[in-house]
């Protein structure tokens, strides 16, 4: 109990005294995760759209495949990418292992299935007539695509928040692909793992508080967005 109290008190002191190392770690987390999700959104939307409105052989199979990817543990994605990006792997020449790019790639593949599945569900729940009305009014595919996206914007926001929530707090893949290099690929979750292993609980708790706060903000936004979505589907 004593350890918990003193560590938590120290954690708050670290956070609010503007400890540069901690805030640098927070910054790296946000930068990498934001890039990853921004990169994942366009392909995820295209895939979700194809799955929802396309008709081609293997469509059902792909849908269940993406749903399966939802529950693939992060370390499995991490390990797979590790093998691919390692110098002896097929993409070894790119020298990506232990870079922010590798970490971002891991997070990209972690949030892609979430974005695809949640966007797909939103698209299925949306009236197909939205797409058809846009098309019959003379909108080209791209225009109709954006029209429908706007119609399901609340569902998409929810997907975005859920995807972000997963990757910002993910430790396994980031540790494996980024290598937890100080000032470079050390993000919030890998730093927590490190500080804990060093016995520096206060630093771990301080970063945990940042994550907790972030999770709270994301969840509140999610609640708000979903509430909005149900009023005006």
């Amino acid at each position: 109990m004593d350890v918990l109290l003193t560590s938590t008190a120290e954690a708050f002191r670290l956070l609010f005294s503007g400890n540069p190392e901690i805030w640098e770690i927070v910054g790296i987390s946000f930068r990498v995760s934001s890039m990853a999700i921004l990169a994942a959104v366009p392909p995820a939307l295209v895939i979700a759209f194809t799955l929802a409105y396309g008709s081609f052989p293997g469509r059902r199979f792909l849908i269940s495949l993406f749903n399966t990817f939802l529950s693939v543990p992060a370390v499995v994605i991490g390990l797979t990418l590790f093998i691919i990006l390692s110098r002896q792997g097929p993409m070894g020449d790119f020298k990506l292992l232990f870079t922010q790019t590798a970490m971002g790639l891991g997070q990209f593949f972690l949030c892609l299935p979430i974005l695809v599945c949640m966007a797909h569900v939103s698209l299925q729940a949306a009236d197909r007539a939205a797409w058809e009305t846009a098309r019959t009014l003379g909108a080209n595919r791209l225009r109709a695509f954006f029209t429908v996206l706007y119609e399901i914007r609340f569902g998409l926001m929810a997907a975005l928040l859920a995807g972000y929530g997963r990757i910002i707090s993910e430790v396994g893949a980031s540790m494996m692909l980024g290598g937890n290099i100080a000032h470079y690929t050390r993000n919030i979750p890998t730093a927590i793992a490190l500080e804990t292993s060093k016995g520096a609980f206060a630093e771990g708790i301080a970063l945990g508080i940042v994550l907790l706060f972030l999770a709270f903000v994301l969840n509140s936004l999610l609640q708000y967005v979903q509430g909005k979505g149900s009023i005006n589907p």
């Binding site: 990169a39 993409m91 790119f94 020298k95 990506l96 870079t99 790019t101 790639l105």
Partner: peptide, 10 residues
Amino acid sequence: AVSLLVMGQA
């Protein structure tokens, strides 16, 4: 995208 990033790093 990957190759662009790589060039920056190499």
